[in-house]
Structure formats: structure tokens, C-alpha cells
């Protein structure tokens, strides 16, 4: 009896939580490595179309993004519901693309400038007219490498 008697004197030892922070730090580093900083806030609603043959964008850091779509709900009162072009953080017209491309080019390393890809993120319900305009403008500033953003469909 007395052999198995619980002695009230003994306390349960505290669980060491010092390794917990190491685990969390590991998670933190994982996310820091696999993600990249969000540069812009979306001002247009973009539901990108599906494509089964979509391939990965190779150099994410060398991409410039052009978003095309209808303004988000909270901005519709101000800008209407027509499809707009968003460059960086604001609505722009197609005439501004030239400056945008020039700025993006300048921000990349000299050796990588030829590899810069312009990623066109357009909503699937957008009409081609605006995209054709954008494409023509891109050709004019000789940013010829483009990518139509698409979801991989299986």
C-alpha cells in the first residue's frame, strides 16, 4: 500500500516551454523564406481565368504586375464599375504604362532587365479591348515578355 501511495509533497514539474519559441521561430523562418512581401493593395477585383497549361513564373522578383478589372466595392462609388487598370497602388490609364514600365525596369538589376516579365492579371470578364490596348502599349515600350496570369485547372 504504502509503496504506491501518492506523496502530496511532490509537485508536477513545470513543462519547459523554452523550446516552444524555437518551434515558432522555425515556422517564422519558413514563412519568411517562402513568401514575399505584398507590395500593393488590390484596388480592382480580379478573378483570374483558368488554364490547364499554365506554367510557373520563373523569376517572381523580376515581375511587374498590371491588374485589370472592375474597382472593388468600396471604390465603385468613386470610380464606377468599368474595368480599370491598376498599376502599383492607384488607378492609371494606359498612357501611364510607359512610365510604369520604365520605373519597374530601373528598379531591377541591370543584368536582369531583359528577363523582366510583365504579368497581366486580368479579370475573366474583362473585355479584350482594354487588354489589347495594354498589349500595344507594352509593345511600344518594348516590354515583350508577358504572362497572362491564370489558375491551374486540373
Amino acid at each position: 500500500m504504502s509503496k504506491f501511495k501518492n506523496s502530496d509533497k511532490k509537485e508536477v514539474p513545470a513543462i519547459t516551454s523554452s523550446s516552444l519559441s524555437d518551434i515558432v521561430f522555425m515556422l517564422l523562418f519558413f514563412f519568411m523564406v517562402t513568401t514575399q512581401l505584398r507590395e500593393t493593395e488590390n484596388k480592382v477585383m480580379v478573378k483570374i481565368p483558368q488554364a490547364s497549361e499554365a506554367v510557373k513564373l520563373e523569376r517572381k522578383d523580376l515581375a511587374a504586375y498590371i491588374n485589370i478589372g472592375t474597382p472593388i466595392k468600396s471604390l465603385q462609388a468613386q470610380y464606377g464599375t468599368d474595368a480599370r487598370i491598376q498599376l502599383n497602388d492607384s488607378f492609371k490609364t494606359k498612357e501611364d504604362i510607359r512610365d510604369f514600365i520604365a520605373a519597374e525596369r530601373d528598379s531591377k538589376a541591370e543584368a536582369d532587365r531583359a528577363l523582366m516579365t510583365v504579368n497581366i492579371k486580368a479579370d475573366q470578364d474583362v473585355r479584350m479591348g482594354i487588354i489589347t490596348d495594354v498589349k500595344q502599349e507594352l509593345r511600344r515600350c518594348s516590354a515583350l515578355k508577358i504572362m497572362y496570369s491564370a489558375r491551374k485547372a486540373e
Binding site: V55, K56, T117, R139
Partner: peptide, 11 residues
């Protein structure tokens, strides 16, 4: 990852 269809525009 960003996915999409890569294209090259004619100059």
C-alpha cells in the same frame, strides 16, 4: 506561385 501562360509579344 504565380501561374500563367507565357507569351512573347512581337516588337
Amino acid at each position: 506561385t504565380q501561374m500563367g501562360l507565357s507569351r512573347r509579344l512581337p516588337p
